[in-house]
């Protein structure tokens, strides 16, 4: 894929990638840095993307996700980054930044585990298929439906509690 074509496609993915990174890192500034780094990494080696192995969207989101995990590892190298994902939640600054109408949703999302937030953003915000979600999260495709359903039910419960 030509670099300029890739740039155009990546532009459309910026906000979704930022939303995903925010859910993982719990901070919009760190999330923007993660997306910026992912852009830099991908655009410095555009040939690394092979269209035959899947879409650019899940591939780029996997780069962003791995970058976020690396960032968490750098923050606290002694801990297992993936375990720490479970404890990260968007802080109050994130909640303040979102529009009023989405505040309840953001608050409810913050109550879920990182894995649940991630899978909801990937499916309902980024509109990825189950196969693509499995690819991004590096999990078996067969587990996506149950994980997603549990996450949605948990979110629904949180929203009901807030409303």
């Amino acid at each position: 894929m030509k670099k300029n074509d890739m740039k155009q496609q990546l532009l459309q993915l910026g906000n979704g990638a930022h939303a995903l990174a925010t859910q993982i890192l719990g901070n919009t500034d760190d999330a923007a840095d993660a997306v910026h780094d992912a852009f830099a990494r991908v655009l410095s080696k555009p040939d690394a993307y092979d269209a035959r192995t899947g879409g650019l969207k899940p591939w780029f989101l996997r780069v962003v996700r791995n970058g976020c995990i690396d960032q968490i590892r750098r923050r606290r190298p002694a801990d297992n980054a993936v375990d720490e994902l479970q404890d990260q939640a968007p802080g109050p600054d994130v909640v303040v930044e979102v529009a009023q109408r989405d505040r309840a949703l953001q608050n409810a999302l913050a109550k879920l585990s990182a894995g649940q937030r991630e899978i909801i953003v990937l499916r309902d915000y980024m509109d990825l298929s189950y196969a693509e979600i499995a690819d991004v999260q590096e999990i078996a495709q067969g587990t996506v439906m149950s994980r997603l359903h549990r996450a949605r039910m948990a979110l629904k419960e949180e929203l009901t509690r807030h409303d």
């Binding site: 740039k7 990546l10 532009l11 459309q12 910026g14 906000n15 979704g16 930022h18 939303a19 925010t22 859910q23 919009t28 999330a31 923007a32 997306v35 910026h36 852009f39 830099a40 655009l43 410095s44 930044e97 979102v98 529009a99 109408r101 989405d102 949703l105 953001q106 909801i120 953003v121 309902d124 915000y125 509109d127 949605r152 979110l155 629904k156 929203l159």
Partner: peptide, 28 residues
């Protein structure tokens, strides 16, 4: 619920900002 998430503004950075990030000289 799905529609509410899809319509939400979970990130409001905007395309122009991402274009700036992408063309940031630090990248290349």
């Amino acid at each position: 619920l799905r529609k509410r998430i899809g319509d939400a503004a979970l990130s409001e950075v905007g395309e122009d900002k991402w274009r700036e990030h992408m063309n940031d000289k630090r990248v290349e």
